[in-house]
Structures are given as structure tokens and as C-alpha cells.
């Protein structure tokens, strides 16, 4: 294992929220260019884990290392550095409603990276083109479909040149017919070698891209392994049972 290829390491992270132990000692390591997929029932702690990684929720215990540097969460400068290096995609897109698609992508370049307006605009347009939305640059979030909003939010994260992207159920709030366009963008990112951790219920899609599935339940990772192993025919993994239930449900909906 080459040490320099490790982008992100999480060690024994514990987080309490509202008196409940939401994360109960979670560890994982992500190497450059890999995609880790978090699966598991709602309430398992997937979102909390992702928010602990960029300290939107500071962990109560445990360590987070980015590029080999331990984040202690005390210095504002360090947090700023961490958050610039970690892109985040939310389930509900969280675009800034008063800014156009282009301005949404540009605002952090100007305010955080202190780029001048022209260079930032140029960069924002590049990223919008990358997610196929160059022609929607002037539209406001209220004028975009859910899929387009999520693609803008991907462009917004990419513009910051993140070392790793955290995707928190990026397609869960989308109508079924809009899921495909967002998954296509995520596939492009994986193909381009972006390091990612994604919480998702899109098992079929992610099993072809992920190098590891992490199955979470009650704040712990209770199963991990290559998707092909966990989902192998005849496997009696917890992951398999969960996925069977998911596909059964979607089968019911389809029929």
C-alpha cells in the first residue's frame, strides 16, 4: 500500500447528536481516484459520517486525515483549507436561490479563492460545460429541473478543485426520469479519476463504479468489500439482503 496515494483517512470517528450515538467508531481509507459507496438503511449515520469528514459536524472522537494532515478542527484557517479541498454534494442540492447557475459556481471562487471576476466567470463556465449545462448558465435555480440543479451543484464543487468529493444521496430527491443525467455526470467524474465517497441507494449503478461498498447500520460499518463479492450469487451478506429488499421494492413500484 503506497502511503502517498491515500487521500483521506478516517479513524474511529464517534459523533453524538441529540444525546444519541449516531456514529459509533467508523474508520475508512480512501485512495486517490477511488469511489467508496456507503449503503445502508436511513438513520444508519451515512450523512453524519460525510458531514464529520469536512467538519460541518465536528467529530466528538476520532481522527480525520486529509492528504496525510490531521485535522483537529480548532483553527479556522485549517477548516477553510479542509473545506476547499473537500467538495460536497447534498441530497437537496442547496443551490443559492438568488444566484444564476453560473453565479452559483462562481461565488466561492471569488469569495474564497479570491479569484478576479473574469477568471472566475471563465472557470465557472468551464465547469458548467463539463456537466452539460453551458446553455443554462443564466438561469436561476427556480428555472432549473432537479437534475439540472444537482448538476450545477456538482459544477460548483468541482470549480474548487477538490481532492475528494462527498456525495450525500445525490439522486434521492430526484424524480426517477431525472436520475440518469446526474448518474451520468457522476460516472464521468469517476472515469476522470475523481476520488469520491458516495452515500446512495443506487446499488446497480454504483456497483459498476465503486471499488468498495461500506454497509452501515446503527452508526457502524458492519460489512465492507468489493461489490462483486458482496453481491455475488449465493452470497449471504447483509449487503445482499439489503439490496434484494431495495430491488424488490423498486420492482413493486415498477410493476
Amino acid at each position: 500500500m503506497q502511503n502517498e496515494s491515500v487521500v483521506l483517512r478516517v479513524e474511529d470517528v464517534v459523533k453524538h447528536l441529540g444525546g444519541q450515538r449516531i456514529l459509533d467508531g467508523v474508520s475508512l481509507t480512501v485512495k486517490k481516484g477511488r469511489l467508496k459507496v456507503l449503503i445502508g438503511p436511513s438513520g444508519a449515520g451515512k450523512s453524519t459520517l460525510l458531514q464529520c469528514i469536512n467538519f460541518l459536524l465536528p467529530p466528538d472522537e476520532g481522527k480525520v486525515f486529509l492528504d496525510g494532515r490531521e485535522i483537529n478542527g480548532k483553527s479556522k484557517k485549517e477548516l477553510l483549507w479542509l473545506r476547499q479541498r473537500v467538495g460536497m454534494i447534498f441530497q437537496d442540492f442547496n443551490l443559492f436561490d438568488h444566484l444564476t447557475a453560473m453565479e452559483n459556481v462562481r461565488v466561492a471562487l471569488i469569495k474564497v479563492k479570491k479569484m478576479d471576476k473574469r477568471a472566475a466567470t471563465h472557470r465557472a463556465m468551464e465547469e458548467l460545460a463539463r456537466v452539460g449545462l453551458a446553455d443554462k448558465a443564466g438561469l436561476y435555480p427556480a428555472q432549473l429541473s432537479g437534475g439540472q440543479k444537482q448538476r450545477v451543484s456538482v459544477a460548483r464543487a468541482l470549480a474548487m478543485d477538490p481532492a475528494v468529493m462527498l456525495l450525500d444521496e445525490p439522486t434521492s430527491a430526484l424524480d426517477p426520469e431525472l436520475i440518469g443525467e446526474v448518474l451520468a455526470v457522476i460516472r464521468d467524474l469517476a472515469d476522470a479519476g475523481m476520488t469520491m465517497i458516495m452515500a446512495t441507494h443506487q446499488i446497480g449503478f454504483s456497483s459498476s463504479l465503486a471499488d468498495e461498498f461500506l454497509f452501515m447500520e446503527k452508526g457502524r460499518i458492519i460489512e465492507r468489500g468489493a461489490p462483486s463479492d458482496l453481491l455475488a450469487r449465493g452470497s449471504c451478506s447483509r449487503t445482499m439482503a439489503f439490496c434484494a429488499k431495495l430491488s424488490e421494492l423498486s420492482g413493486e413500484m415498477g410493476g
Binding site: 473545506r83 443559492f96 466561492a108 474564497v112
Partner: peptide, 11 residues
């Protein structure tokens, strides 16, 4: 959510 997004961008 917008505040979270801004925070996550380092704003």
C-alpha cells in the same frame, strides 16, 4: 441547507 452549502465551500 444553503448555509451548510456555503460552509462546505469554505465561505
Amino acid at each position: 441547507g444553503q448555509l451548510l452549502a456555503a460552509q462546505a465551500l469554505g465561505i
